[in-house]
Design a protein around this nucleic acid. Structure first.
Length: 633
DNA sequence: GTTTAGGATTCG
């Protein structure tokens, strides 16, 4: 530090180190003018690696000759071991520690160029080594000649001048003629048995091994260092031998073993993305699933790389095909609530089989209909299985008005069942609204427990009353009694939920039948419906899912009250939070703007059945006993 | 104001 003289403390702040406190004690104006004048004057001295002396703190530049990606040490910090070399051809192994993973240099491959500030030089076993000292900071650059000189660092402020630019360029030139070039991206199809290599890949699926592992998210690009390939023979029941190329990432950190997440901006990631995009997806799919049929019939050992499963199979003839991830090891966006014992069936096989049958499948949701939530919520009659649209709110006022009598009949007011009250609106031509408060054993209950019958109310008036009272039933004056409206109107309103009945299956009974329920405190829709002779309609989500597992595509129908999405279809139209959850689930199944490869797998239980449409026979599929995964909601 | 790791293939 003393070498930098009076600039030393200020330089620490430039490197985003804790000593920033020192600066903040100064008047702000002072700080800004000082920094303006100091930055151009700041210069670091970089010590060539052949001039290092134990006990000093230096700044160095070097080409990475070896490195261990940061890993959690047995102490308190992350550790990264980095060996660098410079034009003097002297190597220096550096031990880098930090409690902050991000603070360690972002080295992705051998040949990267690093700049270390405040590296302590010490002797260990008669060898010179570097170790992080207070205020250590680093920059990392790509080592490729001609690549843009962009520093990778977690430091908020760092010094970077044309001099640094030249240092990086000079090291690139020197390395290009003095060091063996970093091996080109090795593709899985070029991997040979019994070798160690670095794999750049995208994470498509994972299995949880234990809760203490490092969290990787699916879809990120990874580099796995020193992955070991091993040929494994697998004997099937039919005595056929399947050779399997296993990928092992062994324990420890020897030879730089480890995994790092590569940023999207990384040039190798870019190369991989382009290759994946240009690949013929259709042929890849069929190829992969062709293999998985073998997988289903042969018990093959799993090939785990810290919870990630990567495997390539050799068929007996020696031809090679690739499937990147063992499907059963992946997390699904949906799970089965039953039938887990069933073997999975590829869609191509299902499409060939006779109906009716049940299957466990694993597929992606290529698309779905309808796109609008309002179009997907319908009313279903559990008795006659008819489906109908939920009446639009705009039409409900008209339905209510058409249904109601013009004037409430006062002869029907104030009975044993209810107390009545009548209001006359000042405007709207003196419209009369009657409210009948249903008594509980002759006594009026509290409003939040009270069922009211309303005559001549508008939808907004009904909603207001429904907010205050337990339940609201719209009625009209009949010849001898109050009567329910036509079942185009809701027969019961609770909060924001409108309950409808089936016109075909219901035979309306007298309102007086509510008498049999007044002993009960709460007005359960099904009980109210029952005493009034109504078959209540269920709110359901009705959707068509186009499922694709790479072997085939089929359309499956989903009808759900609340089991599949874990959202009550009856409440979603009146609840913004439920609507947002639904949107999130559908966007998770079919992420907008992404290709199907990036979509999650859905595990579903399907039933096939025949539908006769006139003279035409059609095979249909319906999703059953499936639910959105808990970790997804 | 310490320790960690201190490059040197696995693991049965």
């Amino acid at each position: 530090m003393s070498r930098d003289g009076k600039c030393g403390i200020f330089l620490k702040t430039l490197e985003d180190y804790k000593s920033a406190v020192y600066v903040y004690t100064k008047p702000l104006r002072d700080f800004s003018t000082e920094s303006m004048s100091l930055i151009p004057a700041t210069h670091y001295i970089y010590t060539p690696l052949n001039q290092l002396k134990g006990g000093t703190i230096v700044n160095v530049y070097g080409v990475v000759k070896f490195f261990k990606p940061p890993y959690l040490s047995k102490g308190t910090d992350y550790c990264s071991v980095v060996t660098i070399v410079d034009q003097t051809n002297v190597k220096l192994t550096c031990l880098l520690f930090s409690g902050n993973y991000e603070a360690l240099p972002k080295i992705y491959k051998i040949g990267d160029i690093v700049r270390f500030h405040r590296l302590k030089i010490q002797e260990y076993k008669k060898e010179t080594q570097g170790i992080t000292s207070s205020g250590f900071a680093s920059l990392t650059f790509e080592g490729t000649l001609g690549a843009p000189v962009i520093p990778r660092t977690s430091s908020k402020y760092f010094n970077f001048s044309t001099k640094d630019h030249k240092m990086v360029e000079a090291l690139r030139v020197w390395a290009s003629s003095h060091l063996s070039p970093s091996s080109a991206l090795l593709k899985l199809c070029d991997v040979q048995p019994m070798q160690y290599f670095d794999l750049t890949c995208q994470l498509l699926g994972k299995a949880e091994v234990d809760g203490a592992s490092f969290l990787l998210k699916i879809g990120s690009f990874l580099r796995i260092y020193s992955l070991h390939t091993k040929l494994q023979s697998v004997h099937s029941e039919s005595q056929a031998t399947l050779l399997c190329l296993e990928f092992h990432l062994h324990g420890g950190t020897s030879y730089g073993r480890g995994i790092t997440v590569l940023p999207e901006s990384n040039s190798d990631v870019d190369q991989l993305k382009k290759a994946l995009e240009s690949a013929d997806l259709t042929s890849q799919h069929s190829d992969r699933f062709c293999q998985s049929e073998h997988e289903d019939s042969f018990p093959t050992p799993s090939t785990m790389v810290n919870g990630i499963d990567l495997r390539r199979s050799y068929s007996g003839s020696g031809s090679v095909s690739l499937y990147e991830v063992e499907r059963c090891q992946q997390l699904s966006a949906t799970i089965l609530t039953d039938h887990q014992y069933l073997e999975k069936t590829p869609l191509c096989a299902i499409l060939k089989q006779k109906t009716p049958k049940q299957y466990r499948i694993r597929a992606k949701l290529r698309s779905y209909k309808p796109k609008s939530l309002y179009q997907s919520v319908k009313l279903h009659c559990p008795k006659c299985h008819s489906l109908q649209e939920v009446p639009q709110e705009g039409n409900l006022d008209i339905i209510l008005k058409e249904n109601a009598t013009k004037t409430p009949d006062t002869k029907l007011h104030n009975t044993l069942l209810y107390d009545s009250k009548i209001w006359t609106t000042e405007e709207q031509g003196g419209r009369k609204v009657a409210v009948h408060f249903v008594k509980h054993n002759g006594i009026l209950p509290l409003s939040n427990e009270c069922l009211i019958l309303i005559e001549g109310g508008t939808l907004s008036e009904i909603y207001k009353l429904a907010n205050k009272f337990h339940s609201v039933i719209p009625v009209k004056s009949g010849q001898e009694d109050l009567e329910l409206l036509d079942l185009s109107a809701p027969f019961l309103i609770q909060g924001k939920i409108l309950h409808y009945g089936c016109k075909q299956c219901s035979s309306l009974r007298s309102i007086q039948n509510l008498n049999s329920l007044v002993d009960k405190i709460s007005w359960i829709p099904s009980s109210v419906a029952e005493v009034l002779g109504i078959v209540p309609l269920q709110y359901v989500f009705v959707m068509t899912f186009t499922l694709d597992d790479g072997t085939g595509v089929l359309e499956a129908y989903l009808m759900d009250t609340d089991k599949f999405f874990q959202i009550p279809a009856s409440e979603i139209l009146a609840d913004d939070d439920f609507q947002r959850s639904m949107e999130m689930i559908m966007d998770m199944f079919c992420p907008p703007g992404r290709k199907i490869d990036a979509y999650p797998w859905l595990e579903c239980f399907l039933k096939s059945y025949n539908v006769t449409n006139g003279t035409e026979q059609q095979v249909c599929y319906q999703i059953f006993d499936t639910t959105v995964g808990e970790d997804v909601i």
